[in-house]
Design a protein around this nucleic acid. Structure first.
Lengths: 352, 352
DNA sequence: TTGAAAGCGCTAACAC
DNA sequence: GTGTTAGCGCTTTCAA
């Protein structure tokens, strides 16, 4: 009961078989006589034997780990904490179902993106990349992964012209829907408060907005698109200019590319005497916890983060399990999960 | 430049030395002639060699992983997502500084707590346990860790009578402070909306509350302490009874054991025409993101989650690094980090 | 159906 | 200072 570490040899001895047989029984491979199997299992149970995953993985040359790379962010996250925990839970549950462990890899902003080293050092068998940006360093790192034929999957970020596995939300659909809803309600001067263009999500959201305005025959001027950095503060800072536009009759609604900016904006406008849902319509994106707490509650785009995590892990681990020689033949996976608008008082007279 | 996997033997060959020497150079152990070292490093660089962490760890019998065990929770988390990401970031940064990788281990509520197996299978060298509960299964699992002499650290949970490493916030201090502040402002009938007693935090918070009331000579009756489950819904559900007490002159303030319940309560009371900060004072705990968003903003106890994560990881990894024979002599670490009250409009006339 | 034995890639005595 | 060698605990041919 209380041994230091039980090795397989002891199990073999107790069961009166060879180590190889113990291995077969425990891994369920090859033909085994019923009685032998029982004897081995009983011996293992009796000795309270737990195989060394370290040795197994070494012998198999597989780490058994699914890596999740994510930027380490200071207080003002790119991610809402909501995003973070939802997506991670999805990945975690799915990895576990596939028998993989989750290796969390924080990357400091100033650190190089040496993703390929994770594979070379055999720390992971596949990896999911969160928060990737369209910048040279990132593109080079991803290219290296692809050339090394290392399985990876991007989440919420695509790269035009590259065929990387990607699980994304249909952001374009989201802001299209948001804009259409506003237009349907009679709003005509709809601003768009976007995030940095290094995130393809920002680009996609803008497209949906453009499309909806065009379809409605509404004019779009450069001054209608503002850019923040996805933080609450940046939404707050835009309040002054936007308040001016509202008062000047140049704006009657704002779609923000995430909830954090929307919430900051909403607060900033409130301080200037402008109330969301009355003086101006506001719609955010993410449907984070905070959206339900603001006054008035914030309309938002519901993004299935948990499901995105599940999809990313499951698709990736499917590819990892494939035979090495098949790897190059793996189809590229590019998923866009649907989103939906949830309307609350910030963008309509119907309170929620 | 583009090899499959480069092994150390190739580096040795190219540098014209033995594998052992390569090892010494790369690990910086033993005396090495300057010139040899340069040759080895150059060869490694040229071949783009990255050692196999898998093999290293196997050879050293050390996984190089710090495990973080956390309950996998459905929508209504025990943890706020805020808690989750703050603490995890703290752990992650610290682990990285110590050269450890982070293994995230989600535990489904119905699964057994076989923490010791993580060590037996050599998946981790130490582990941090989040969301531990004072229930028999947990106590048994922890006892087994202790008896096996496996390094672990609890976060935000202590067990009376056991000397486990624990990093906690001083919850008692927090609710003591909250109650004192209310009393100072003239509140006299202060309710306490607590969470389940399986969390020592709940017990500690209650103590601080009791202490403050006693010090002020205020009576405490059983009806003044209510119990929820830390979810927003449970706070909301208590609103009806609490509204009755407020109207009946039996209550004029409520301290909730976390922000989620406080926010639910605040909403429930609002629907019944009772406004926090005017008809009743409310103070939460955690100072989560949501606290700043409610109307009125919620007073709360600031808990240094990030720092808790850092402390837990750093203390634990210190113990892990210790010589095996010293392990039993390691002092037990029990840290209680201070918290502080931040007062907002929900508990005072001074708006924030 | 089972056993023997050759690794997996690296570390760490020990010898020179 | 550097090379030789025996493992680390398990998987997996190959024979029997």
């Amino acid at each position: 009961m209380e041994e230091g570490l039980i090795r397989r040899s002891e199990v073999a001895k107790l069961a009166g078989v060879s180590e190889a047989t113990v291995s077969r029984v425990l891994n369920g491979v090859g033909p085994i006589k019923e009685e032998t199997r029982d004897r081995v299992l009983e011996a293992a149970r009796q000795l309270n034997y737990v195989p060394s995953a370290l040795a197994q993985r070494f012998a198999r040359s597989r780490s058994g780990n699914l890596g999740v790379i994510l930027p380490l962010l200071p207080k003002v996250n790119l991610f809402s904490t909501f995003y973070f925990s939802e997506i991670l839970s999805g990945i975690g549950v799915t990895a576990k179902e596939h028998g993989y462990d989750l290796l969390l890899l924080f990357r400091k902003p100033e650190e190089p993106r040496d993703y390929a080293n994770l594979f070379k050092s055999q720390k992971v068998d596949g990896c999911i990349i969160l928060g990737a940006q369209n910048v040279p360093g990132e593109r080079a790192a991803l290219k290296e992964l692809q050339e090394g034929n290392y399985p990876f999957c991007l989440v919420n970020q695509r790269f035009d012209g590259e065929s990387y596995n990607t699980i994304d939300a249909d952001q374009r659909m989201g802001s299209h829907e948001a804009a259409r809803s506003l237009i349907r309600q009679g709003y005509r001067r709809i601003l768009f408060l976007n995030g940095p263009a290094v995130y393809s999500n920002s680009v996609d959201r803008l497209k949906g907005y453009h499309q909806a305005l065009e379809e409605a025959g509404l004019p779009i001027t450069p001054s209608m698109v503002l850019v923040g950095n996805y933080s609450r503060t940046s939404g707050y800072q835009h309040a002054e200019a936007i308040a001016g536009m509202i008062r000047g009759g140049l704006a009657d609604a704002v779609i923000a590319a995430n909830d954090r900016m929307a919430i900051g904006l909403l607060q900033g406008l409130k301080e200037r005497g402008l109330r969301a849902g009355e003086d101006v319509a506001i719609i955010g994106c993410d449907d984070s916890d905070g959206a339900k707490l603001t006054d008035p509650p914030l309309s938002s785009i519901v993004v299935p983060f948990y499901q995105i995590g599940c999809e990313a892990a499951s698709k990736l681990l499917g590819a990892v399990a494939a035979d090495p020689q098949d790897k190059k033949l793996q189809p590229v996976i590019q998923v866009k999960l649907p989103v939906r608008l949830v309307e609350r008082a910030s963008s309509s007279v119907i309170s929620t």
